[in-house]
Structure formats: C-alpha cells, structure tokens
C-alpha cells in the first residue's frame, strides 16, 4: 500500500491527489462537464501512477510471479523487502530535518502502533452488511498506510475469504448475489478512503514532520513480520468447487501427480460426491481450487 509511496517520497502528493477526487469531480462527471471535472483533480499524477501500478502488476504476476515466489522462496522475497524497508527507514529519518527527541517520540509511537497492528490475532466477526461496510473502510485505511497491508487487515477481521468467495461468484450464475454482497464493502472502501485521506492530508499540512515520523514508525513496526526467517503457518481457502468424474482423466492425473502444495493457489481433489454409488465409474468427485494465505508467522534468528 502506502509503503512504496513513503519510501520514494511521494506520500504527501499521493494523499492530496486521492483527496482531489471529491464530490465536485463526481458531479461534473455525471453532468458531462469533463474539462471542468479534470481541471480540479490531479489526473496527470494519478494517470502516471496508475500506469506504473498496472505495469508493475502485470510484470510481477506474469513475468516475475512474485506471488508464487513468496510461497516457494519466502526468505529471498521477504529478505528483499526487509532490506528495502531498513534502507528506507534510515534515509527517511535522515531526511527529517533537525531530528530531535520529540521526533523519536513520534517514531516510537508509530512503531508501537504498527507492531500492535501487525501482531493482532484474527477474530471472528459478523457478516452483516454493516460490518462488511466497516471492514471495507478499515482495510482501505490500512492500504494507504505504510507498513500495513489491506489484505492483512481483512484476514484479521476474518473477511478475506468472504470477500474472495464473493468475488469468485462474479461471472457465474451467482453474479448478482456476489455483486450485492460486495457492494457494502466497496461503499465502505470509498467512504473510508474519502474520510481517511482528508484526515491524513490535514495532518500532513499541519503536522508534517510528526506525521511522517509516525509513518516511519509504522515501517519499523512492520519489520517484525517482514523479517525473512519465520515459522509460517498458512490457512487454506476453497475458492471454487467443480464436480468431475471419479475415474475421469483429470481425476486420474491428479491422483498420479499430486499437486505442489507450497503454491499460492493449486487444485486438488475434494470429497466424493456420491460415495454409495455401485461402481467407481458412476462416482463423482469434487475438484477444488485452494488459495493459501499466510495467517501467522513467528520470527526466529537463524
């Protein structure tokens, strides 16, 4: 989320740019006054940023699939981010002019809050639209804060699998139901982003050094979970279930070559749908798509 923006020094610009997409912009847009709509927002900055994000997503999922390496070589990937963040902390602290003890206080405050957030334990929560709305607004706040990831907050609130399964419904016969369930989440995210960027931009305008010091603290607090050497435990979410023939080609193939389970997503055989069928040929079996997500990690010194 906000980590990279803080590291490369565009954090303040990012927050102000997000904030510039306000109700006036929406009003101009729906009344087709496009030039007026564009004049009030930081569209050049956002277009370049979004183009960068989009090409990075393509590059790091299709060409260098980071999401796979995070599961197969976690030490290398987490090490890379650990080094990146340690270096950035030093550079960012040096950039704060006239570092004094009161800066150290804000950095410590941020570190404590950051550490507290990244070591929270998942809690069971309600699936009412109101709570889903709230989850969306909290997760988006985490997304714009450095050191804390939005998807991690969803895990803590036990809404990650819920949102994922609703997104999985899109494009199937349950599209309408999925959309209806996601709607409170999206509305929450928009509301959260609008309110939180206003708070952050006010803080950056009035207490710039203190705010940046707390944000650097968040980065320091997050080092605990970024440390490359950890005992990691994962939770598996079934995102898709398909019923196939028990003796069919795909089922046989999976029995002969069991799937690699240290991948972020893989397909494996589930339960037999009709175990009482007379012949194996009549039986049907579930083919499930499993998504793995890191839920707990305990750092150790190698």
């Amino acid at each position: 989320g906000g980590t990279m923006a803080l590291i490369v020094g565009i954090y303040s610009r990012l927050i102000h740019a997000i904030k510039s997409f306000d109700t006036r912009f929406v009003k101009d847009l729906v009344t087709f006054r496009f030039s007026s709509a564009l004049s009030g927002v930081h569209w050049r900055f956002m277009t370049v940023l979004l183009a960068g994000i989009f090409s990075a997503i393509l590059f790091f999922t299709k060409i260098v699939p980071l999401q796979v390496y995070m599961f197969t070589d976690p030490e290398l990937i987490y090490g890379l981010f650990f080094g990146l963040i340690v270096g950035s902390i030093v550079i960012l602290l040096k950039a704060l002019d006239s570092f004094g003890w009161w800066h150290a206080f804000y950095v410590l405050l941020g570190t404590l809050i950051g550490f507290w957030v990244v070591t929270l334990v998942p809690a069971d929560t309600s699936e009412s639209p109101l709570f889903v709305f709230l989850s969306g607004s909290i997760a988006i706040c985490a997304m714009v804060l450095p050191g804390i990831s939005g998807s991690y907050i969803l895990l803590i609130l036990r809404k990650y699998d819920y949102i994922l399964s609703q997104v999985g419904k899109l494009g199937t016969v349950e599209t309408a139901e999925g959309l209806l369930m996601i709607l409170p989440f999206v509305l929450g995210a928009i509301t959260g982003l609008a309110l939180f960027t206003r708070l952050l931009s006010w803080l950056l305008d009035h207490y710039y050094v203190q705010t940046i010091a707390v944000l650097i603290g968040f980065l320091i607090g997050s080092l605990y979970v970024i440390w490359p050497y950890q005992d990691r435990s994962y939770e598996e979410f079934i995102t898709e279930t398909e019923v196939i023939e028990y003796t069919g080609e795909r089922a046989m193939e999976l029995r002969e070559n069991p799937p690699e389970t240290n991948l972020p997503t893989y397909r494996r055989l589930g339960e037999v749908v009709n175990p009482n069928a007379t012949f194996d040929e009549l039986k049907q079996i579930e083919l499930v798509t499993v998504k793995k997500k890191l839920v707990k990690s305990d750092p150790f010194i190698p």
């Binding site: 590291i7 030490e75 987490y78 090490g79 890379l80 650990f82 340690v86 270096g87 050497y229």
Partner: peptide
C-alpha cells in the same frame, strides 16, 4: 535457507541506496 534471506536483504539495501544516490 539462511543464504537466500541474506542475499535478498543485500539486494533490497543496494536497491534503496542506489535509488537514493540517483
């Protein structure tokens, strides 16, 4: 995989120092 973590951390540090230098 002690070495992997070390190599990763070094690459990360070099990247950020390089960026700052530029």
């Amino acid at each position: 995989h002690f070495g992997h973590g070390l190599i990763g951390m070094l690459i990360g540090l070099v990247m950020v120092i390089g960026l700052d230098f530029l």
